[in-house]
Amino acid sequence: MSKLEDEIKTYLEQIEEIIDIDDLAEVNIKKLHNLLTTIIGAVNIGGYSIIGDVVVQLIKVFDGILSNRYDLNHDHITLQLITNEYIKEMISRSPEELKRFSTEGIISAFEDISSELTVDIKDIYIKDIIRDKIRKKIDADILFNDSKDVQIPISRIDSIITGINDLILNQYQLKTKIKEINNIKEIISNIKETGYTAEVDRAIRDFSSTETEIDSQLLKFERTAFNIQEDVLSMRMLPISFIEERIRDTIKTQAARFDKDITAIINMDNILIDKIILQAIEKPIGNIIKNSIEHGIDSSGEITINCSYDKGKINIDISDNGVGVCYKTIRHKAMELFPFEKGKIAKLSDMELTE
Rank of each mutant, 00 (worst) to 15 (best):
I266C: 00
D215M: 13
D112H: 08
E211I: 11
G312F: 05
G312S: 05
K333L: 15
N321G: 00
Q14W: 03
D146L: 05
G312E: 09
E336R: 10
I51H: 03
I345W: 12
E355N: 10
E13K: 15
M1A: 14
I15Y: 04
S2L: 01
I138L: 05
L218H: 06
E222Y: 12
E341R: 06
T250P: 01
I188W: 01
K137M: 13
D317C: 02
I134T: 12
P153E: 08
I281V: 12
I277A: 03
V323P: 07
G64Y: 03
P239S: 03
K342I: 15
Q173L: 11
D128I: 10
M268D: 00
D298G: 15
V323G: 11
V61C: 13
T176M: 08
F226V: 12
K148H: 15
A198Q: 09
D206G: 12
G296N: 13
R331W: 06
I8K: 00
I126A: 06
E193I: 15
K148T: 11
K60C: 07
Q151H: 05
R93W: 12
L337H: 07
D249I: 08
V43S: 01
P95Q: 05
R100V: 10
I277D: 00
G195I: 02
I154Q: 11
D350N: 06
Q217N: 07
G64S: 04
T38P: 01
G312D: 07
E111F: 08
E16Q: 09
D310K: 12
L72C: 14
G64W: 02
E186T: 07
R236T: 08
S308G: 06
T83F: 01
M90C: 06
D120Y: 02
H332M: 15
D310G: 03
I240F: 00
A140K: 07
V119P: 02
E7G: 03
H76R: 03
I288R: 07
F258S: 11
G195A: 06
E230C: 06
L72I: 13
E294M: 05
L81S: 11
T78Y: 09
I240S: 00
D146A: 09
D6I: 11
H33Y: 14
G52P: 01
S189T: 13
S102E: 12
N291A: 08
I157L: 11
I316W: 01
E245K: 14
L233T: 04
I168M: 10
S349D: 15
I121D: 03
I45A: 13
I297Y: 11
Q80T: 15
I271D: 00
L278P: 01
I113P: 01
K313N: 13
N68G: 00
I113T: 02
I8E: 00
S241G: 02
F101I: 09
I121F: 03
S216V: 15
K122E: 07
K342G: 12
R236A: 07
L219F: 09
F242I: 10
G195W: 03
E352T: 04
E341L: 08
H74Y: 09
I285W: 02
D259F: 04
I142T: 10
D261N: 15
D261V: 14
I51D: 02
F144D: 00
I126E: 08
H295Q: 12
D53S: 14
I19N: 02
I273A: 02
I59H: 09
L174N: 04
I77Q: 02
V325P: 05
L278D: 01
K88W: 10
I39K: 00
T253L: 10
T253C: 07
I50F: 08
